[in-house]
Structure formats: structure tokens, C-alpha cells
Design a protein around this nucleic acid. Structure first.
Length: 454
RNA sequence: GUGGUCGUAGCUCAACGGUGGAGCACUAGGUUGUGGUCCUAGGGGUUGUGGGUUCGAUCCCCAUCGACCACCCCA
């Protein structure tokens, strides 16, 4: 007894505050109810991207830190404060991926995808990790769907990528909630010139800037332009405009893109202040903004990253892509009251009393499932009342009831749970009867046999 | 990373510094082969956690964990 107490004391000393175990800050379980959203969203994405000739890729959840560090930009928020970086047992620095593009580009180079037909069109549906203060729609582990088109430079590809994002949003019933924000940030060279001009302009005016912007002047001068502090706004109004520095090629590219978007009937908002948080973007950048209630929350975004493949050691290769946050998609579907089919709901509950009935029910249940009837059987003990109660909780629209009487008569009872009526059906007709009641199109059928051998 | 709001039963929420309650949910019975409706009864809580102030703390103070909001940023 004394030993037991000692053990408990030890346990007390190692258990952290709070309940014994709970998820760390900013991460959560995806429970069955939400998985119906994930499943449906994945289904839409797979279909739409397959139609467009995209193939799915998964890269590792962690990479060498370098994959992200230099490519996303040392001074970006993501790299400077949001990465989960750790050392493995041999002291190598690894990082949980905070975004998808860098890993895909690494894979493109490592697997010699430049040898494939270009452009290479890839998509992914994967979890990502950022150490940030959580909020609704902002978590430390989150899922993104992303697409990358690598190996060709043409504004028509940018237009297609944007269109794909919109089709997916439309299929999910939430395209109307967002506005497409569009901008061109030019080539790295023209941006460099512009940044220098901006810094020039702000030189000597630092003390008029808010504290935040004083830091931005060094790290990310483009952000100075959309600060909301009054003095910063005033200064930004007189600052040199990027259009003066935008190179001709980027200008032409952007004009073509807009023409293509018009042709596709895609509406966009030209937003000269749109800047993305990662350094690898060039020319086209875009985001989908939730504009309700003055919010500027993005559900997704992307752009062109022509220099990234080369930066990562591959041949000079143009590319464009986008990513959307699945948790944010789900939140918006709920906000818009968009329901997803409840594929998990069972069709039939099988209740039985007695061993003989159970013997008859087991093969019947198997046969029902083979035919696509989602079936749960009460195979344990329990009174008829208890079993029906369970059937009710599962929300099964039909219950098959078998007792000794039915076994003797060679019948089963099929009960309509919503109305409360029931009928006796010959045992060998039960399956057919249920299929009729449920409706062929509602069956959850699975057809093996697509495999090819040899 | 900065500022703020909040944390009470499984869920949604009450309770002036003075014995922690309600609705829903759950369990059992009314109903020995019939659920969901109805009636009756019942079980449930170290008030997130750890300290402090107080005769006494769900309430006041500090710390910590978590959720959310505004920044920031983006998914």
C-alpha cells in the first residue's frame, strides 16, 4: 500500500498541469463528423485536377531546414518565426514543412522531372506546420491543397491555375464568398530596384513611421505600403509606385493574363498592394479574400515562381501554383450552410434475439454489406428495446428484427424507423426488399476488379 | 510575437465573496419481443491547473495551460 502511494506521488510529479493528456496548442483531432468534409473536398479536388491532367504527389512532412530557409526567404515571417525546426540524432537540422511549393520543387529537381513532358502538373493534399498564435482558421497543423505547374512560362497557365482554384471553390459552393485579388510583382530584378527606390524614399523619414514599419523598412519594405497607421498611410501615398519600376516583360505578361481571365469570365480585383509572404514569387501573385465584414482573410493564394527551381540548384525553370487551406474551406462551407453528403450514415440496423436468430443474421448482414447496404448488427446481448434504442441512435432508417418466432416461420421483420411501421418478409426476400426500400442509387457499392495483372 | 475576452456537469449556459443550479444529453423504471414521443426516478462537478488574499473564493490577485478576438501574418 505504501509502495502504491509512492508510485502515485511519482506520477503526480511528472504529470503536467491540466487534464492528463490533451492536444498541444493549436492542433486538434479531426473527428468523424469533420472527416466527411475532408473526404468530400478531397473528392472534388481529385476529380477536377485529374480532369486537367494533374497528378498527385506527396513529399515528406519534414525536410532539411535549408529546403525552406533560403527559398522562402530568411526575413519572411514563416522562416524567421513560424518554423518547427529540430535536430535529428546526428545533429542535422530538419524542419516540419510550413508550405508545399519548396518540397515539390526539391522533388522536381531530385527526380529529374525536367526530363518529363513539360509543364509538369502536380497537386497535393497534405498537412503543414507553422508555429503561430492560433486563431479560428489558423492552426499549427493545417491541411492545404496545392497545385504546381512547373516547366513553362505563359500567362495562359497562370489563368488556368486560377480557374482551377475557382472551379474547386464553386464545386464546394463557396466561390461567391471570395474575391480574387490580383497583382504583378515583376521580376526579382525590377522588384529589387523598386525596393531600393522605396528605401531611398523613406530614408530620413524613419521617425515618422510606426515602430513596426521601421523594422519593415529593412526586412520587407513592400509591406510599408499597406500599413494602417495614419502617418504611414500618408507617407505611402507619396511613395514611388511600383508600376514605374515594373519591367516591360512583366507588364506584358500581366496584361495577357488579364486578357485570358476576361476570356474565361473570371472577375478579379487589381490590387497593387498585394504582396505575398514568401520571397520566391515573381510576376503574378493572387489571393482569394473573404471580403465579408471588412475582413481580408485569405482562403488561398499563389502565384508565379520562375526563379525557384534555379535557386534550388535546378535548371532555369518557370513555374506557377496556388494553395488553399482546407480548414478554412470547411469553415466557410459551414458558414454558407453548405452540407456535405453524410456517407457514414448506416442504412440498416439488424436486431436479433437468441442464438438461432443470430446464426441466421450473421450471413445476412454479410450479404447486405456485399450489396452496398451499410449495416450495423447488434451482435451482443441486449433486450429488443435496448437494441432498437441503439438503432435509433445510429439514425438507421430501417431495422431488421429477428427472433425465435421469425426463425421458425422463415421470415424477418423490416421496421421503418421514421414512421414506426413494420412488415414481415420471407427471409430469402429480405435483401431484395431492403435494396428496393433504400434505393439502388443510395447503395454504397464497391467494385473490386480494376486491377491489372501481369 | 503584442494587446484583449473567456474557461462551471457530456453539450449550451446560470449562481451579490456565504451549502454550485437549469435545459438538453445519459441511466433505470412505467412497457417480460419494439426505439424515437410521454410520465417518474436516478447518476453525475476537486468550478481548466497551481499558488495567494480571506473566517470563508466559481467570484478578488498572481502564475500556468487552453479556446477565441484584434494586431501581425497568411492557409
Amino acid at each position: 500500500m505504501a509502495d502504491q502511494a509512492a508510485v502515485n506521488d511519482d506520477l503526480d510529479s511528472i504529470v503536467p498541469v491540466g487534464p492528463p493528456y490533451q492536444t498541444p496548442k493549436g492542433v486538434h483531432d479531426i473527428l468523424p463528423a469533420d472527416h466527411e468534409y475532408y473526404t468530400y473536398i478531397k473528392k472534388v479536388i481529385r476529380h477536377r485536377l485529374r480532369q486537367a491532367g494533374f497528378r498527385r504527389i506527396s513529399t515528406p512532412i519534414f525536410e532539411f531546414t535549408d529546403v525552406f530557409q533560403r527559398t522562402l526567404g530568411e526575413t519572411t515571417d514563416v522562416v524567421s518565426k513560424e518554423m518547427y525546426t529540430f535536430q535529428d540524432r546526428k545533429g542535422r537540422s530538419l524542419t516540419l514543412r510550413p508550405e508545399g511549393t519548396a518540397g515539390v520543387v526539391r522533388s522536381y529537381i531530385q527526380n529529374n522531372m525536367q526530363a518529363l513532358a513539360q509543364p509538369v502538373q502536380l497537386y497535393y493534399i497534405e498537412p503543414f506546420f507553422r508555429y503561430d498564435r492560433p486563431q479560428k482558421g489558423r492552426y499549427r497543423q493545417f491541411w492545404q491543397v496545392g497545385v504546381e505547374v512547373i516547366g513553362e512560362s505563359d500567362p495562359a497557365l497562370d489563368a488556368q491555375v486560377i480557374q482551377l482554384a475557382l472551379i474547386v471553390l464553386k464545386d464546394l459552393g463557396i466561390d461567391q464568398l471570395f474575391s480574387l485579388q490580383l497583382n504583378s510583382i515583376g521580376t526579382p530584378e525590377s522588384r529589387k530596384k523598386y525596393v531600393a527606390a522605396l528605401q531611398d524614399y523613406y530614408f530620413g523619414k524613419e521617425r515618422h513611421l510606426c515602430e513596426l514599419c521601421q523594422g519593415r523598412l529593412q526586412t520587407n519594405p513592400l509591406r510599408l505600403l499597406d500599413c494602417k497607421e495614419e502617418d504611414c498611410v500618408t507617407l505611402a501615398k507619396l511613395a514611388p509606385s511600383f508600376s514605374e519600376y515594373l519591367d516591360d516583360e512583366s507588364k506584358e505578361f500581366h496584361a495577357d493574363l488579364k486578357e485570358f481571365l476576361d476570356e474565361l469570365g473570371i472577375k478579379y480585383v487589381e490590387n497593387p498592394k498585394l504582396v505575398r509572404g514568401l520571397d520566391y514569387y515573381a510576376k503574378t501573385v493572387f489571393e482569394f479574400w473573404d471580403t465579408s465584414a471588412g475582413a481580408q482573410n485569405a482562403i488561398g493564394g499563389g502565384g508565379r515562381y520562375d526563379g525557384l527551381v534555379e535557386l534550388m540548384g535546378g535548371p532555369s525553370t518557370p513555374a506557377v501554383g496556388f494553395a488553399m487551406g482546407i480548414e478554412r474551406i470547411i469553415a466557410n462551407m459551414k458558414r454558407a450552410k453548405v452540407r456535405v453528403p453524410h456517407k457514414d450514415e448506416v442504412h440498416v440496423f439488424v436486431a436479433q434475439l437468441g442464438k438461432e436468430a443470430k446464426k441466421k443474421c450473421l450471413p445476412l448482414i454479410m450479404k447486405m454489406r456485399e450489396h452496398g447496404i451499410k449495416t450495423i448488427g447488434a451482435l451482443g446481448k441486449g433486450s429488443m428495446g435496448a437494441q432498437l434504442k441503439i438503432a435509433d441512435k445510429f439514425g438507421a432508417p430501417w431495422t431488421v428484427i429477428m427472433g425465435l418466432t421469425e426463425v421458425r416461420e422463415g421470415v424477418a421483420i423490416i421496421r421503418n424507423m421514421s414512421v414506426g411501421t413494420q412488415e414481415k418478409v420471407k427471409f430469402e426476400d429480405v435483401l431484395e426488399k431492403l435494396i428496393t426500400l433504400i434505393g439502388k442509387k443510395n447503395l454504397d457499392t464497391y467494385h473490386p476488379g480494376e486491377l491489372l495483372y501481369g
